[in-house]
Nucleic acid binder design. Structure first.
Length: 935
RNA sequence: GCCCGGGUGGCGGAACUGGCUUACGCGUACGACUCAAAAUCGUAUGACCGCAAGGUCGUGUGGGUUCGACUCCCACCCCGGGCACCA
C-alpha cells in the first residue's frame, strides 16, 4: 500500500517545474499581467528563517492561483547582498564579502527551492553584481544632477574604541554593539538625499494605493506633517531675531520664556558679541552648559526619564511680539535642534515639558486657556459648522467651538448652559459622549479650551484663536503660517567597504571655478545643479559608469572614520571628467537601502534577454517597466514600513518624474502592500541562536515535507499577526495531507479494483457526487478563492480541512461496504479539491493529479468557479429564540415565509412551555435565520 | 504622552452588514486495536448546579442602546507594535 512520503515526490516535482520553466513570466504577453512581489532577502550566513518562508509561501500561493486564473504572473526573487552583516562577518573570519555572499546565496537558493516556490529564476538579481549596481549608481547620478543629493556635516555615532562610525542599529542603549564602549557623537561630512522634498507627495499619494491601514498610519506619522505658526521674537539689545515654531499660537499670551537648543546658531552669535554690548552676564556658565550637552550622547539627551536641564542667558531678554512683554531667554538641551528651527516658546501652564522646566527653575506660570466641556458629534463637519457659526454670530463671541481630531468631530463649550441650546440645534443627544476637561492643580492643561488673560482674544476657542493670533502676527510682520515635518533628509553615505561606490569625484580646480562663477551667471550650462550645490564635486558621465568596487583584501575599518577604499591611491586618484585636472574619487559607499530602492524595476527588465553588449544583461527598458509596473501585490515586514518602503516610494517617484519610468505606470510603485507577522519560537521568544530555539526549515522539510510546512505556515494563525511556532500544529497539518493521500491510495485505488476501474475512467464525471457534497465543495471553492485575495490563509486552510473531513470518513469494520467509504465522491470532484489545494500544497497535488491519469501538469488547470446553484441550500436550521435566548432549532425549507415559520414555531413543545401563563408581546422574524418570541 | 492593532475554551484561533459563541487545528480524558508502547481509529471536552430532564452564568471591566450585543455607544483596565522632550 502506498504511503505518503513527501521526500520521494517533492524533489521530483521541483525539478520538473524548473526543467520545463513553468513559472517564467512573459514580457508583453496578451494575458493580463500580475506582478507579485516579496521583499528580497538579505543572504546572511544564518540561512532561511521560517519567518521568510511564511511570507514567501503566502505569495507563492497567490502567484499560483493567479496563473490558474489566466494571468501572466511575474513572481521574482533576488538578493539584497550589500551591507554590514556580511562585511562584519568578513572582518571576523577573513573570508572576503564577495565569497561569503556567493556561498550564502547558494545556501538560500537551495533552501528556497526545497520549499517549492514558483519563482521565475530566470530573472534572479543580485545587488552586488556590477551589472546591477551600475544602475544603482546611475540613479544616484540622476539625483545628484537634479540637486537632490547634497553634502552636509552630520553627527554620527562614533565608537572611540573600534574607531568606526556606527549605524543607529549598531548602537544599543548608547553603547557599541561589538565592544560595549560608550559611543560619542562626531560630525562628519555625509551625502544626503532630499526626501523631504517629496514629503507631501509621499503622504498624499497614499490615497491612491491599497496599503493596510496601519502601514499608512505609520508612514504618515513618520513624515509628521504639522501646520503651525512661526513667530519672531526680537532680542532686546543685540540685533537678533529668534524664530520659534508652535502649533499652539492660542497659548501665546502664556509665554514666559524662550528656550533655545544649545546648537542654535543664535546662541553662538549671542556669545560672540559679548564684549561689545556687554550683554550676557553669566558667560562662563553658559559656555559650560553647552560644552556639557555636546558631550552627552543622543541617547542621554533623549532619555525622557531624566530631568530637564537648562541655563538662562542672563542680561538679555526676548520681546513677545503680541504684548511687547520682555521674557527671559534660556538654553535647554531638551529642545530638539533639528526641528522647528531649534527654538521654542515656553508656555508652562499648557505644556507638560515647559511646566516641569518652569517648576524646576522657578519661572512664571500663566494660565491662558480655560478648559471647557466636550461632546463628540455624529454629524458632518460642514453641517455642524454652519449651525455653530450662525449661533455664534447671533450671540457674539459665544464660548463654543468645533474641532476635528482623528476623524472625530468634537464640540467644545464653556459650560452646559452654552452647550445645550447648540446641541439641540444640531440634533444631538445631550447626555451622550460627554466629557468635561478639567484644570488640575500642579499639572499643565494641554487640551483645547477658551482663552483668558489674552487681551482682545479672550473667550475665543483655541482653534479659532490660533487663526486669529496668526493673522494678527502676520499683519505686524512678526509671524506667519508654516509647516514642519519630522521627516529628515536621508543620510546616504557609509564609511564602509561593502557597498556601491558613489560615482563622484572631487576636483579643486572646478571648486574654485564654481565659487567664482556662482555670482556671475545663474543659468550655468557647464555644471549641473548638483555640482553647483556641492562645489568641487563632479559627476561622472553616464558612459563612465560603472564604478566598480575594487577588490581589496583589507576591508577593516581605517580608524580615521574614512572608508577602507580611501587607502587605494591608484583607485582614488583620477582625472576630473570636466577639466581633466587631478581629482579624487568619493570613497564613501552607499547604504544597503540603495540597491533595494529600485529592484522591483530590475526584475521587469530582465525578461527575454537580447543584449548585444558583452556581459551586459541588464538594460534600462522603459517599455518593459511600462508593461509590468506597478507591482500588484507587495508583501513584506512591518519593520520596513518607515525605511525601505518609504525610501523606495521616494526613489520611484523621482524616476517617474524624470521619465525613467513611463508615466503610464503611475506615480506609485506598489498598488497593494500587506505585511506578515513574525514567527516566534515555541517558547514565545524571538528565534535566536543564543536562546537555542531556532527552527531550521531544512529539518522541517526533511522530516515532514515542504507541503506540510507550507500548509502549517498558512494555517498557524492570521497572516498579519505574530505567532509562536508549535510542533503539534505542524503534525496536525501533516495528518491532513496524509488523509488526502490515503483517500486516493488506500480507499479509492487500494480497496476494490473493480470499483477503482470505473472511478478512474470517470464515467460518472458529468454528474456531481451528490447535492450535499456539491454544496460543501462549492462553498469551499468560494471561500478559498476569497480568502486568498484577502490574505486570510488560515481560514482557507481550515475550509479545505472541513471539506476533507466531509469526504474522508473511513468506515468502521462492521460497516465496510464494497466501496470502503460512506462518502462517495467522483473523480471530477476530487480533482476540484486538488486544484484548490494546489496553491498551498503543490507537490502532493501534482502527484495525485498525475495518478489520476492526466498528461498535463495541474499547474495549468483552470481555477474553478463556485457554482451558485449549489451554494444555495434547500433547507436551513431555523433558530428559535425566546426573549433573545436560543431555546430550540428546527429544520425548515429555505425562504420559508413568516406566517409559516410562526405557525411551526408556536407548535413546538418548548415554546408552548415557555409561553405558559405569559402573553406573547412580539415576534421578530429574520428571514432564513431565526425567529424570536418575546413574552 | 501620541498613533495603530488586540483582549473569545487548557492552547493557536473561528464567527463581527447586531441574530446558533467557540468552526478548523492542537492538547487532555476515556475507549478500540496491541503482549505492550507508538502510530491509527472512535467518543467526549467553556464553567457551574443536577442521577437525569434541564437550568444558571459566560467573548478584559463597568455602564448604555436593542426583542436580541463578541459585534454599536460611553468610561476604564490590560497586552502587542510604532513614534517620542517633534513644542
Amino acid at each position: 500500500m502506498d504511503i505518503y512520503e513527501p521526500e520521494k515526490i517533492e524533489k521530483k516535482w521541483q525539478d520538473f517545474w524548473e526543467e520545463n520553466r513553468f513559472f517564467k513570466a512573459k514580457d508583453f504577453s496578451k494575458k493580463p499581467k500580475k506582478y507579485i512581489l516579496i521583499e528580497f532577502p538579505y543572504p546572511s550566513g544564518d540561512g532561511l528563517h521560517v519567518g521568510h518562508a511564511r511570507s514567501y509561501v503566502a505569495l507563492d500561493a497567490v502567484a499560483r492561483k493567479k496563473r490558474m486564473e489566466g494571468f501572466n504572473v511575474l513572481f521574482p526573487i533576488g538578493w539584497d547582498a550589500f551591507g554590514l552583516p556580511t562585511e562584519n562577518y568578513a572582518i571576523k573570519t577573513g573570508i572576503h564579502p564577495k565569497v561569503a555572499t556567493r556561498k550564502n546565496i547558494e545556501n538560500f537558493k537551495r533552501q528556497l527551492k526545497s520549499l517549492g516556490l514558483s519563482f521565475d529564476w530566470s530573472r534572479e538579481i543580485n545587488t552586488t553584481e556590477p551589472e546591477y549596481y551600475k544602475w544603482t549608481q546611475w540613479i544616484f547620478l540622476k539625483l545628484f544632477e537634479k540637486g537632490l543629493a547634497y553634502q552636509a556635516k552630520i553627527p554620527i555615532n562614533w565608537c572611540p574604541s573600534c574607531k568606526i562610525g556606527l549605524a543607529n542599529e549598531e548602537v544599543i542603549d548608547g553603547k557599541c554593539e561589538r565592544c560595549g564602549a560608550e559611543t560619542e557623537q562626531r560630525e562628519i561630512k555625509q551625502w544626503l538625499l532630499k526626501i523631504t522634498e517629496y514629503a507631501d507627495r509621499l503622504i498624499e499619494d497614499l490615497e491612491k494605493v491599497d496599503y493596510a491601514e496601519k502601514i499608512k498610519a505609520q508612514q504618515i506619522n513618520w513624515i509628521g506633517k504639522r501646520y503651525g505658526t512661526e513667530i519672531d521674537f526680537k532680542v532686546d539689545g543685540p540685533d537678533e531675531v529668534i524664530k520659534v515654531f508652535t502649533t499652539r499660537a492660542d497659548t501665546f499670551f502664556g509665554v514666559t520664556a524662550v528656550v533655545l537648543a544649545p546648537e542654535h546658531p543664535i546662541v553662538a552669535s549671542l556669545l560672540k558679541i559679548k564684549n561689545q554690548i556687554s550683554n550676557i552676564k553669566n558667560y562662563e556658565e553658559v559656555k559650560n552648559y553647552i560644552k556639557q550637552s555636546e558631550k552627552k550622547s543622543e541617547f542621554e539627551r533623549t532619555n525622557l526619564t531624566k530631568e530637564k536641564t537648562g541655563v538662562e542667558l542672563k542680561g538679555i531678554k526676548a520681546i513677545n511680539p503680541v504684548n511687547n512683554e520682555k521674557v527671559p531667554i534660556w538654553i535647554g538641551d531638551y529642545v530638539v535642534a533639528t526641528y522647528g528651527g531649534g527654538a521654542v516658546m515656553m508656555v508652562p501652564a499648557h505644556d507638560k515639558r515647559d511646566y516641569d522646566f518652569a517648576k524646576k527653575y522657578g519661572l512664571k506660570i500663566r494660565k491662558v486657556i480655560n478648559p471647557g466641556i466636550r461632546y463628540s458629534l455624529k454629524i458632518k463637519i460642514g453641517e455642524a459648522k454652519k449651525i455653530v457659526d450662525e449661533h455664534k454670530r447671533k450671540y457674539k463671541n459665544y464660548e463654543i467651538g468645533l474641532t476635528q481630531k482623528n476623524g472625530i468631530l468634537e464640540l467644545y463649550a464653556k459650560d452646559f448652559n452654552i452647550a445645550y441650546p447648540v446641541l439641540e440645534k444640531l440634533g444631538q443627544e445631550k447626555y451622550r459622549s460627554f466629557s468635561p476637561d478639567m484644570f488640575i492643580e500642579n499639572e499643565a492643561f494641554t487640551g483645547y479650551g477658551f482663552l483668558t488673560n489674552s487681551g482682545e482674544f479672550d473667550r475665543l476657542f483655541s482653534e479659532e484663536a490660533i487663526e486669529k493670533i496668526t493673522e494678527f502676527l502676520e499683519k505686524k510682520g512678526l509671524g506667519k503660517k508654516t509647516i514642519q515635518y519630522k521627516l529628515r533628509d536621508w543620510v546616504f553615505s557609509r564609511q564602509h567597504y561593502w557597498g556601491e561606490p558613489i560615482p563622484l569625484v572631487f576636483c579643486e580646480n572646478c571648486a574654485v571655478k564654481i565659487k567664482n562663477q556662482k555670482s556671475k551667471s545663474k543659468n550655468n550650462k557647464e555644471f549641473n545643479e548638483g555640482e553647483l550645490l556641492n562645489p568641487g564635486w563632479i559627476a561622472l558621465s553616464e558612459k563612465d559608469l560603472l564604478v566598480e568596487l575594487p577588490h581589496i583584501e583589507k576591508y577593516q575599518p581605517t580608524g580615521t572614520g574614512e572608508s577602507p577604499l580611501s587607502a587605494i591611491s591608484d583607485w582614488v586618484n583620477v582625472k576630473c571628467p570636466k577639466c581633466e585636472g587631478p581629482a579624487k574619487r568619493e570613497t564613501d559607499t552607499m547604504p544597503n537601502w540603495a540597491g533595494s530602492n529600485w529592484y522591483y524595476l530590475a526584475y521587469t527588465m530582465l525578461g527575454n534577454q537580447k543584449s548585444k553588449i558583452k556581459n551586459q544583461k541588464l538594460i534600462w527598458d522603459k517599455e518593459k517597466i511600462g508593461y509590468w509596473m506597478p507591482v500588484d501585490w507587495y508583501n513584506g515586514g512591518m519593520e520596513h514600513t518607515t525605511l525601505h518602503l518609504l525610501y523606495s516610494r521616494f526613489i520611484y517617484k523621482f524616476l517617474w518624474d524624470i521619465g525613467a519610468v513611463p508615466k503610464s505606470a503611475g506615480s506609485e510603485p506598489y498598488q497593494r502592500r500587506t505585511s506578515h507577522g513574525m514567527v516566534l519560537a515555541e517558547d514565545g521568544r524571538k528565534m535566536s541562536k543564543s536562546f537555542g530555539n531556532v527552527i531550521n526549515p531544512d529539518e522541517i522539510v526533511q522530516k515532514y515535507g515542504a507541503d506540510t510546512l507550507r500548509i502549517y505556515e498558512m494555517f498557524m494563525g492570521p497572516f498579519g499577526e505574530t505567532i509562536a511556532w508549535n510542533i503539534n500544529g505542524l503534525k496536525g497539518c501533516r495528518k491532513f495531507l496524509d488523509d488526502v493521500y490515503n483517500y486516493y491510495f488506500k480507499w479509492i485505488k487500494g480497496y476494490n479494483q473493480d470499483y477503482f476501474q470505473t472511478w478512474i475512467q470517470g464515467t460518472q464525471d458529468n454528474k456531481s457526487t451528490n447535492g450535499e457534497f456539491s454544496a460543501i465543495l462549492n462553498k469551499t471553492i468560494k471561500k478559498v478563492s476569497e480568502d486568498i485575495e484577502n490574505f486570510r490563509f488560515n481560514t482557507a486552510i481550515s475550509q479545505l480541512m472541513i471539506l476533507k473531513n466531509d469526504f474522508y470518513e473511513p468506515l468502521r469494520d462492521n460497516e465496510i461496504s464494497s466501496r470502503g467509504f460512506i462518502k462517495f465522491i467522483t473523480k471530477r470532484d476530487f480533482e476540484k479539491f486538488l486544484i484548490i489545494l494546489y496553491p498551498f500544497a503543490p507537490h502532493i497535488s501534482e502527484e495525485l493529479w498525475k495518478e489520476l491519469k492526466h498528461k498535463n501538469s495541474i499547474s495549468f488547470e483552470k481555477w474553478p468557479k463556485a457554482d451558485q446553484e449549489f451554494l444555495k441550500e434547500a433547507t436551513f436550521e431555523l433558530v428559535i429564540q425566546i426573549n433573545g435566548k436560543v431555546r430550540d432549532k428546527v429544520e425548515v425549507p429555505m425562504d420559508i415565509s413568516e406566517e409559516e415559520a410562526r405557525r411551526l414555531t408556536l407548535e413546538r413543545e418548548i415554546v408552548k412551555k415557555w409561553r405558559e401563563g405569559k402573553e406573547v408581546k412580539k415576534i421578530i422574524f429574520v428571514k432564513n435565520k431565526l425567529i424570536n418570541i418575546v413574552v
